[in-house]
């Protein structure tokens, strides 16, 4: 069993905390000049996303988590699982709805996603920062209304709904920032 000592602690290190994989966010060394040293550590529980603070006696060790991040291609959804493939090894993994979460509405087949694997199973699925998706439904475009700054909702091929300018037409392909859900512009077909 791999372990990390407190003096190996640094941001991004993946460890086991309360039975869940967690990532170190901050590590502060606290030491009275003549006494025991401590590390005050902030973790993010990778399963729940919650931030937890713990204090360790310096020199103690905690178990490492078998967690790593990898780029995988989204293949398809079979109604229950989302399937991803490592483009080099062709190895496939399946993620359930609870793991895919909000990322689901951005996932388009063939797109590359960042998958965090824990003991070989998907733990977190992150869509690409920018996706290009076709509009499947929106109100007809209003010509010449580019300066007004008004918006309307548009439904995309993956089911996501984004706010778009009034001149945008159904069938157009948009570039969207998945971190904010904001429309970035049209993509020329």
């Amino acid at each position: 069993m791999a372990t990390y000592s407190t003096n190996e602690f640094r941001g991004g290190l993946k460890v086991m905390l309360d039975g869940d994989p967690a990532s170190i966010l901050e590590n502060e060394f606290v030491k009275p000049g003549k006494g025991q040293a401590f590390n005050r550590v902030k973790f993010r529980n990778l399963r729940t996303g919650k931030v937890i603070e713990r204090t360790f006696k310096s020199g103690e060790s905690i178990e490492a988590a078998d967690v790593h991040e990898t780029q995988m291609q989204y293949l398809y959804n079979d109604g229950e699982f989302w399937h991803f493939m490592d483009p080099e090894s062709f190895e496939q993994v399946a993620a359930e709805a609870g793991v895919v979460g909000d990322a689901a509405k951005w996932l388009k087949e063939q797109d590359m996603c960042q998958i965090t694997l824990y003991n070989g199973e998907p733990l977190i699925v992150e869509p690409p920062n920018f996706v290009e998706l076709r509009i499947t439904e929106t109100d007809p475009g209003v010509r010449g209304d580019t300066a007004q700054g008004g918006t309307k909702p548009a439904t995309l091929e993956t089911g996501a709904v984004v706010k778009v300018p009034l001149f945008i037409e159904e069938g157009e392909v948009l570039r969207v920032d998945t971190r904010t859900g904001e429309y970035q512009g049209r993509v020329k077909g």
Binding site: V30, G35, Q36, R54, T55, F56, K57, E60
Partner: peptide, 22 residues
């Protein structure tokens, strides 16, 4: 005071040091 210990073994003086520092 909201301190959660990840440590396994704490002697009495360790607690005093921790409380003093935090």
């Amino acid at each position: 005071h909201g301190i959660r210990l990840g440590a396994v073994s704490m002697a009495r003086d360790d607690w005093l040091d921790l409380l003093m520092a935090e």
